[in-house]
Design a protein around this nucleic acid. Structure first.
Length: 880
RNA sequence: GCGAAGGUGGCGGAAUUGGUAGACGCACUGGAUUUAGGUUCCAGCGCCGCAAGGCAUGGGGGUUCGAGUCCCUUCCUUCGCACCA
């Protein structure tokens, strides 16, 4: 064995070995329990970032651990390869998105391989390949047949200069990111997936996801947003015709306080009124401009205009004026609200601004009411007042009574409303899955027949930022109508990339299947036992995937799977300190932490930070996520080149538990590297001679350790305690303390099992050998390369086989036993000393030993002992 | 505003059922090795105190023999959602 740890060599050899033996190929095996471990697949943006390294290391540790525990594991990898960044890169460099994407994939794949992940590369998939996205198209058509896909007009951000649709992230302060032109809202036809048909199941099934973090489930539940309320109709007449204005409310108990109605700018009634009122038309137009993002809308001032139309109150018959309000959302409920200024903050602000009547109808435990200023309790539940026959009723009672009365008049009923909206999947983009529709002058929108799938996306186009290049490509655009055979035009919109990621986990089970979307192998592997990814996908990706799984189930494509991901782990972000300098003119320049030296005073406290290049101080702006704009990123490649993959993996796992944020620390990385060098050195010096004994110790006939010297037994006890800790922490996925347990083991090993003349030499060697074999196996899922090399070089591999499938070490409970136990002595709950007592000592014996102990008597003298609490094996507390 | 998570040494973080707070690592201090720097090794390291001892898990209160852990209250931080009627 070479005495020097050479990570580059060690890792290269391990990779060659795994490659040669096909170590990570996953094969269906009904005889063994399966474990499908999946990390969210990356977007091929160019190179791996630290978030990827962390994500995939967590998954790899889990995969390797479960394999040692006897599971048939599968860890696949693929590429979320369609998307906007490829188009942006194309515009910047004039390279087709396909070329850019495939080049990035090649580089990132090589990085993943360097990190030594136990991935079955035979299952690699690419969402931008026709053999994958044809099934997006195929399922789209099945959903179309079932009415789960439909077409309607939707609102998009439109850049009037580039004549193109903008994604939300391309709109900055209401202007196009490239042109700076004010963005308009535009109505265009789009395809939608009817996710709302699954709202009830998507909500109720959250309860079954016991392996998901609570906050992700809460976020999804809020997003789905089920509200119970009442749909109320306000009758009116228009050109002699009787009509109804419908509103939805969760506060039907306040109906008697309704003094106006407000409709969204897009509401038909607003459009009608605008026809005869130019000022109103201008206002409606204004509302339709600007961003489509709701977070932006929420910042706007309340604005409105009367329509001049009146409706009558469904209970009193009173005349009520209809307004257009910029705060009313067309997409929620009926696109219209009843205005109850007395008990709704928005209506209150609106009424105050336009001098509308405010009528309080709820009394909240006698708290004061003034129409001058809004108070939070105005919106609380209370008793009806000023409400005629409903006076005195509470919230529930009033809602029931009012709903019943409305139902009698045919003017309303109880209703459940969802916040969740259907999923618009059309994107006016080139680099995505073509929507398989053909537009024919005579036949209308015609689905592409199955035997003409896939509709292949040409890979050689270069977008220029103006419109969709597909629309300028005759070879793609022109086709024949499948129905009538006449010349027709292909749909040029592509699908949202969330479609691609909504089912890739199913395809990993059978990526080579060319006849079907999925086959019976999916039944073996599904559901994903552990899914790992960033919290940023808590809502959309995870909700769409759940929806998609249910759709495929209901179409009979998969069976026995209601939910795709049994357990979910959302890993924390990777942070680093931010350093900057501010120039005299106020310009801020950020400096990478790698270029900054930290100064400490002699107590270890930070005393300053200076830039290495000029020795002048820089300011710290705290810590934040690694980002280009703050120049605080660390390139994983540098880390690997410098220290090797094992150190990178070890640091990632050690610095904090998987779900928490991780703070980058160069010296922490050094510490990890130091530990691995120490491990190597210890093995080189002591491991080989010890290993010769290992087969009698850990794997041979059980030895009676109770006869050995106390030092040897203490040594084993400490190894097995650490093993117990590590096993527990692997189960609960707290890998930082697994690393700490391994460090303890090495500390113990270096301390030795006792010198010459203590115990039998044979026992000392066996204890060391056993300790080494435990440490290597416990550390292996985290740092597989160095442990592979040591396992091989110390001779374990030849006798016991590959570390990949080595049995997980078993805690020897007998080793944890001690003849004498150290007990903590407390007086009045305060720590006063320690004493040793025989393991066999009973409660009374311990009590009398404690009361006689000097550490106790010092504090009990002159006082009377009231009570003695004995916690077996732990402590004695004397109360005086 | 609503919802969720979290406040523990100079720092990252431990503490499985209420039972020795600060494991493990980093930083720092002293010493050894080294021509020196680095590496490596040994020792120390919550705060105050010469010591005995006292004080410490954001603040305040409570339950308990005993509270980082349970309850109440308050402050702060982070994240998510946000005109949802």
């Amino acid at each position: 064995m070479h005495p020097q740890y050479d990570p580059e060599k060690v890792e290269r050899e391990a990779h060659q070995h795994w490659e040669r033996t096909g170590a990570f190929r996953a094969v269906e095996d009904p005889a063994r329990p399966k474990f499908y471990c999946l990390s969210m697949f990356p977007y091929p943006s160019g190179k791996l970032h630290m978030g990827h390294v962390r994500n995939y290391t967590i998954g790899d540790v889990m995969t390797r651990f479960h394999r040692m525990r006897g599971h048939n594991v599968m860890q696949p990898m693929g590429w979320d390869a369609f998307g906007l960044p490829a188009e942006n890169a194309a515009m910047a460099n004039g390279v087709p998105p396909a070329e850019w994407t495939y080049r990035n994939i090649d580089y990132m794949r090589s990085q993943l391989k360097k990190l030594g992940f136990a991935i079955d590369w035979g299952r690699e998939l690419f969402t931008c390949r026709p053999d994958y996205y044809r099934w997006n198209q195929w399922l789209f058509l099945r959903m179309l047949e079932k009415g789960l896909v439909y077409k309607k007009t939707g609102t998009v951000n439109w850049d009037p200069v580039d004549q193109t649709v903008l994604a939300n992230e391309q709109v900055i302060d209401g202007r196009g990111w490239r042109t700076g032109a004010v963005v308009e809202k535009r109505e265009i036809p789009m395809y939608y997936m009817r996710i709302t048909a699954y709202a009830e199941e998507l909500l109720s099934a959250l309860d079954s996801l016991t392996g998901w973090p609570e906050r992700v489930k809460t976020m999804q539940a809020n997003w789905i947003g089920k509200s119970h309320g009442v749909n109320i109709a306000f009758p009116y007449e228009l050109a002699g015709e009787k009509k109804l204005l419908r509103v939805f409310t969760t506060r039907a108990d306040t109906l008697m306080g309704a003094t106006f109605c407000a409709v969204a700018a897009e509401h038909p009634l607003a459009a009608h009124a605008a026809r005869s009122d130019r000022k109103l038309a201008a206002f409606v137009d204004e509302c339709k401009h600007g961003s489509v993002m709701e977070a932006d809308l929420a910042q706007l001032d309340k604005k409105g205009m009367p329509t001049g139309l009146f409706v009558s109150h469904p209970i009193t018959g009173e005349n009520i004026e209809v307004w257009v309000g910029n705060y009313v959302l067309m997409a929620y409920g009926e696109g219209a609200v009843m205005g109850v200024p007395g008990h709704d903050e928005r209506d209150f602000a609106f009424a105050r601004k336009y001098g509308l009547r405010i009528k309080p109808v709820i009394d909240v435990e006698g708290r004061p009411y003034s129409t001058d200023t809004w108070q939070p309790w105005y919106a609380d539940y209370g008793k009806c007042v000023n409400s005629g026959r409903y006076d005195g009723l509470d919230y529930q009672g009033a809602v029931e009574a009012i709903a019943a009365d409305l139902k009698k008049k045919n003017l309303g009923d109880k209703q459940v409303t969802w916040r969740l909206r259907d999923w618009g999947i059309s994107r006016q983009r080139y680099w995505g899955t073509p929507i398989p529709i053909i537009h024919c002058q005579g036949c209308g929108d015609v689905p592409v027949p199955d035997d003409q799938l896939p509709v292949v996306l040409p890979e050689n186009l270069v977008p220029d930022g103006t419109g969709n290049p597909l629309a300028r490509t005759p070879s793609f655009l022109n086709c024949k109508c499948p129905k009538c055979g006449k010349a027709a035009r292909r749909e040029t919109d592509t699908m949202d990339t969330f479609v691609d990621s909504s089912w890739y986990y199913l395809r990993f089970a059978c990526p080579d299947q060319s006849k079907a979307m999925v086959d019976e192998r999916a039944k073996y592997w599904m559901a994903v036992d552990q899914y790992i990814g960033g919290i940023e996908h808590a809502i959309l990706h995870l909700l769409y995937s759940r929806f998609w799984t249910k759709v495929m189930r209901d179409l009979g494509l998969i069976s026995g799977v209601d939910e795709p991901f049994t357990r979910l782990l959302t890993q924390g972000m990777v942070l680093n300190e931010i350093f900057y300098r501010k120039s005299a003119e106020g310009r801020i320049t950020y400096y990478n932490p790698a270029d900054v030296d930290l100064k400490h005073d002699d107590k270890g406290q930070r005393s300053g930070a200076i830039l290495k290049s000029d020795g002048q101080p820089v300011e710290s702006d705290g810590i934040g996520t690694m980002s280009k704009s703050k120049n605080n990123g660390v390139d994983p490649q540098d880390l690997i080149d410098r220290y090797g993959a094992d150190t990178a993996r070890l640091f990632m796992m050690f610095a904090s538990p998987p779900e928490q944020t991780l703070e980058w620390s160069d010296s922490g990385v050094e510490g990890g590297s130091r530990f691995l060098r120490r491990l190597w050195l210890f093995a080189a010096n002591n491991g080989k001679s010890a290993a010769d004994h290992v087969f009698n110790a850990a794997f041979g006939p059980v030895k009676d350790w109770t006869r050995e010297a106390p030092q040897v037994r203490e040594f084993r006890r400490s190894i097995h305690l650490a093993l117990k800790q590590a096993s527990y922490d692997y189960e609960r996925m707290q890998y930082n303390t697994v690393v700490s347990a391994c460090m303890k083991m090495l500390n113990t090993l270096e301390g030795g099992a006792g010198g010459a003349g203590i115990g039998s030499v044979n026992a000392v060697d066996q204890a060391v050998a056993e300790g080494v074999s435990i440490l290597l196996r416990v550390l292996y899922p985290i740092t597989p390369h160095i442990t592979y090399a040591l396992w091989r070089d110390l001779g374990y591999a030849t006798k016991l086989g590959d570390l990949l499938d080595a049995p997980w070490p078993v805690v020897d409970e007998a080793a944890l036993d001690q003849d004498e136990i150290e007990l903590v002595l407390q007086v009045n709950g305060k720590l006063r000393g320690h004493m040793r007592a025989p393991k066999s000592a009973g409660r009374e014996q311990i009590e009398s030993l404690a009361l006689a102990h000097e550490a106790v008597t010092r504090f009990t003298e002159g006082h009377s002992v009231k009570k003695v609490v004995v916690v077996p094996g732990r402590l004695v507390n004397v109360v005086v």
